[in-house]
Amino acid sequence: MNALIDTASWILLAGGALLSVIGGIGMLRMPDFYTRMHAASVTDTGGMILMLAGLMLQAGLTLVTAKLVFVMLFLLITSPTATHALARAALEDGIEPQVDHDKR
């Protein structure tokens, strides 16, 4: 049972690490600010959730897991808010997205 949990947490941590690095690569590869936000979103949600879930499995049913849950909740609430504020500020500042289809 212990080995099973260990393996599961290993897989989650590795997945989180992979998504995190992929998001970092995307930050460099994407052509403009708005598409870079999508890449940032990958590390911010996928990488963060998987990594914290892996840590939760390691901690078991303790207060540490509760704290990890709170860290995750705070990040899940604040990161889209910050991203949205950023996107809106950029648009209002006149940074036009390069788009293929504009259906505003």
Binding site: G23, M30, G46, D102
Partner: peptide, 20 residues
Amino acid sequence: NWDVAKRIVLPGRRISPTIV
């Protein structure tokens, strides 16, 4: 996540930014 991660890693331009 899976979808966007694939688009980042695979070579070539696989995005078509759209505003709706």
